[in-house]
Lab assay of single mutants.
Amino acid sequence: MEVVDPQQLGMFTEGELMSVGMDTFIHRIDSTEVIYQPRRKRAKLIGKYLMGDLLGEGSYGKVKEVLDSETLCRRAVKILKKKKLRRIPNGEANVKKEIQLLRRLRHKNVIQLVDVLYNEEKQKMYMVMEYCVCGMQEMLDSVPEKRFPVCQAHGYFCQLIDGLEYLHSQGIVHKDIKPGNLLLTTGGTLKISDLGVAEALHPFAADDTCRTSQGSPAFQPPEIANGLDTFSGFKVDIWSAGVTLYNITTGLYPFEGDNIYKLFENIGKGSYAIPGDCGPPLSDLLKGMLEYEPAKRFSIRQIRQHSWFRKKHPPAEAPVPIPPSPDTKDRWRSMTVVPYLEDLHGADEDEDLFDIEDDIIYTQDFTVPGQVPEEEASHNGQRRGLPKAVCMNGTEAAQLSTKSRAEGRAPNPARKACSASSKIRRLSACKQQ
């Protein structure tokens, strides 16, 4: 084909351009004929944790799935940006308080904090938690009735009371019990989460009196709706648990309003109706937990002794299953770290194939690490110290990083047969305790 000078094309009309061969290198194709290559998922490591896909996002930050490269346990990490926390009232204080509380709590029905990582340079905090497959609110939203069968609701409620009793025994008032803060594992274990607005009572406090509340409006008791200066913290949790039980068994809320002012007005009056299909035992329990006067409201001991709580409820309806993943529609909620794991395991070791967030990740503290002497050669063979940054567990980050890069360049065919977990650990520049 004859090559045409581009400067001469402006002298031709459209018809003349076609005659000189423009149609031979300008093609129009339908979008259905285009085959897009999927974007390669680059592996990203935060300390010893391999990052997966997004699980959810809230006002405080994002939650992603991660894999512990040492234990191969599935975890969830809450990623918090200090810049964003400053824009939220009491944001930083709530996060630090939640970390302090979770560090000393150990119960099967309370979410466990596994690790805390802090990135000084990017001003990011990573709260590594045990993995929960789904939230209770997500399960309720997945069915038209917006409720659980009585047998399933009873099982979840009993676990909620177990976890709540443990928190109260530790002198902690949750203040925000609701389905949105109750998570579930694949085995059906309920976990109380989000202790950001919780309050730890003084060890020598005479009672459970509280003065502040930041919980969700629909789950607040009349004493808070009416603006009382002080109130019983434990009875606030009992009320919120009662509203939660009402919601998961009926699909409704005892109090509603077009806006928060109308909602608080209705809560302050204390008038509500219980659907007739709840039955006398459940209705009596709800009335005891939603008692207007805090002094007359049920205690956890009274809830445990109630006939509806103690009764064994046979399954009359099919239980609400864990819904498919909202993004991938995966009904099994498979591990989202698998594509990243395959990338590390299947590809040659190259620095361009993975990302390490930083050479140094500070753990379990908000301060910069200490310094240790770096050896410097002298005339008599002895070495003197220069400062060298280290990880919180004493690992020399720069030395590990250099060693990792040197190993990656060394030709050794046997290394390709290593397991995925050992490869992740070798790529991680800074081991965590």
Score class of each variant (00 low, 15 high):
L285E: 00
S422F: 11
P6S: 13
D30S: 15
I79R: 05
S59C: 05
Q302L: 12
V197R: 06
D208Y: 05
G91I: 15
G163F: 00
I35E: 15
L54W: 03
Y49D: 01
K78N: 01
E145P: 10
T189C: 07
T244L: 06
E407I: 15
P373E: 13
T250C: 08
V368L: 10
Q305R: 07
Y118T: 15
Q100I: 15
S307A: 12
S401V: 11
V337L: 05
L160F: 02
R147L: 02
P89S: 04
D194V: 00
E92M: 00
M136D: 00
I46A: 12
F255R: 03
Y246I: 07
V95G: 02
D162A: 04
H174G: 02
Q7E: 09
C278V: 05
E396T: 07
G227Q: 09
K83C: 11
G187S: 15
M335V: 11
C73W: 02
E57R: 07
Q302P: 00
F148A: 01
V390G: 11
P321W: 14
E375L: 06
T250S: 11
A377E: 00
R74P: 09
V320C: 04
V133W: 02
P275T: 04
G187T: 14
S421D: 15
N259F: 09
R106L: 07
N259V: 02
G270A: 04
L427H: 11
D343I: 14
N393F: 13
L290I: 06
M335G: 13
Y246L: 04
L160R: 00
Y156D: 01
P6C: 07
N181E: 00
L164P: 00
W308R: 00
M51G: 07
G61M: 01
S428I: 15
E121D: 04
K97G: 03
R104Q: 08
L427W: 13
G233F: 12
V20A: 09
N247V: 04
V338W: 03
T328D: 13
T336K: 13
Y156I: 06
Q123K: 01
K48V: 09
H174S: 03
Y126V: 04
N181D: 00
F255M: 04
L102E: 13
N247A: 11
L67V: 05
G215W: 01
L290G: 00
E374I: 12
A200I: 10
R405L: 14
I274Y: 08
T249G: 01
L102I: 09
A198V: 11
P6F: 04
G346N: 14
P254W: 05
R40D: 15
Y362N: 12
M129V: 01
Q159H: 00
I360A: 14
K41Q: 05
L9N: 15
P217R: 01
S59E: 11
D68Q: 05
R106G: 03
I29T: 02
L195I: 12
R301C: 08
R333Y: 13
S213P: 10
V372N: 13
K416Y: 08
I224N: 12
L286W: 08
R415Y: 12
T402G: 07
Y49W: 06
R405G: 12
P294I: 02
C132N: 09
P411A: 06
E351M: 06
H379K: 11
P323D: 10
R405P: 09
K124G: 06
N247F: 04
E265R: 11
A205L: 03
G10P: 08
K312D: 12
G91M: 03
A316G: 09
T209M: 12
N119A: 12
V77W: 04
I192F: 07
H306W: 00
T363V: 08
A43S: 10
I360D: 02
L113Y: 15
N226W: 15
R40P: 08
V173G: 07
M129S: 03
G394Q: 10
E199V: 12
T71A: 12
K64V: 11
S419I: 08
A318Y: 15
R383A: 12
T13C: 14
L286D: 00
G242I: 00
L9W: 12
E145Y: 07
T250V: 09
Y131H: 08
E374Q: 04
S422Q: 14
S334C: 01
K122F: 09
P6Y: 15
S232D: 07
D358E: 03
K84P: 13
A225Y: 05
G381V: 03
I356D: 09
H154W: 04
M335C: 10
C391G: 09
M11L: 13
V20H: 12
L45T: 09
L85S: 09
K423S: 14
P314L: 08
L45R: 08
E293R: 02
K388S: 08
Q137A: 06
I172N: 01
E374G: 07
F309G: 00
S216W: 00
A347V: 09
L252I: 13
R40K: 06
A153P: 00
G15W: 01
I29N: 12
R106I: 15
C418I: 11
C134I: 11
A398N: 07
R211V: 10
I267F: 03
I300V: 07
T395Q: 12
T189N: 02
G346V: 04
H306A: 11
N393M: 12
S334H: 06
S31F: 04
R331L: 08
M22H: 15
R39T: 02
G58P: 01
H154P: 00
N119P: 11
I88M: 05
G257Y: 14
A347M: 13
I238C: 11
Q37I: 15
D162M: 15
V3L: 03
S283M: 09
F219V: 04
F231M: 00
K311L: 06
K84T: 03
S428K: 02
S69W: 01
M289Q: 01
L201G: 03
S378M: 07
I79Y: 00
G56Y: 00
H313Y: 01
K403T: 08
T212R: 12
T71P: 02
D277C: 10
I356P: 15
D207G: 05
E293N: 13
V372W: 07
E317I: 14
D68N: 10
S59D: 05
L160Q: 00
W308V: 00
K269Q: 12
Q159V: 01
R310T: 05
E98Q: 01
V128L: 05
D352C: 10
T363S: 10
W332M: 11
L195F: 12
H345M: 13
L195E: 14
S422L: 08
Q137E: 02
Q220K: 03
T185S: 05
E375F: 09
V34L: 07
Q364F: 09
D355Q: 09
I274S: 05
E70P: 00
